[in-house]
Amino acid sequence: MSQSATTDQKTMLTSTSGKAESLWADAWKRLKKNKASVVSGIFILIMCFIALFAKQIQPYPFDKQDITQILEGPSATHWLGTDNLGRDLLSRLIYGARMSMAVAIFTAFVSLFIGAVYGAISGWFGGKVDAIMMRSMDILYSIPALVLMILVMVAFGSVELFDNPELKAMTGIFLALSIVGWVSVARLVRGQVLQVKEMQYVEAAFAMGASQFGIVWKHIFPNILGPIIVTLTFQIPANVLFESFLSFIGLGLQPPFSSWGVLANEGWRSLRNYPHLIISPGLAIFMTMLAFNLFGDGLRDAFDPKLKNR
């Protein structure tokens, strides 16, 4: 069928009923109606912007110490106060966004890629391949996520690969999070592929002589992309949280570098007398996670309105 014919049909239908739009346009329309999602989406964009231009935005260098202004509360010069070495907390928070967001988003995409490929192979071939692949994945699944991450951090921590401590911690956290993250994506993709591969259009493509890879890539993936994107939106906040866990218990990034987990750890130690030090990184994590969760909810409803209210 030629491209123009379908477009014509589409415009015709749109002009009469106004409902025959592609799944994506439809989803976009529904998403725009959901106020919480729109606000969250904007918030996420702002956070990404802050993370990207952290070095330009921060009012003071994140590791600049000022011994004359130690542990001060919020003021006009230091909006969020200063820590025990006189470093500006707002600058550290902004600089910390770099680490937290980068790790969270990058890891989500990598686990998406690995999980999608693994799950698609497993689901598409089925039978013995599927059984073996799923069994070996179950082994990873039976170790609690944080224990697995800690093991990876221990192993990676003793390998001398990088001179830059920031890069080293980032790679370590990234590896630890990816090893845990791809499993759930692989399960989801496998389940979806198992469902979709029985569809008639797949059979039709097969009958027309399309290659296996072509079918999976061109016919199956576009149809299961919705749930995958939704999973992705829920993985990012989980990653933000795990990064902060790891840094909080002292396994991730170390001071003077900054991530939200590092700040939380530092704030925790002076909770008794200087609670402002833990409240602001805590709130930063909370708002980011809330935004991603709300956005994910909206996205899920937008892709599948039947699921609304879940």
Binding site: L241, A264, I279, N293
Partner: peptide
């Protein structure tokens, strides 16, 4: 409920300690 999912443990712990213990 959605806030409860998004709140990091250490923040909840810190706030509870500040209120009830300190």
């Amino acid at each position: 409920a959605i806030s409860g999912v998004a709140l990091p443990n250490f923040l909840v712990g810190a706030i509870l300690i500040l209120i009830f213990a300190l």
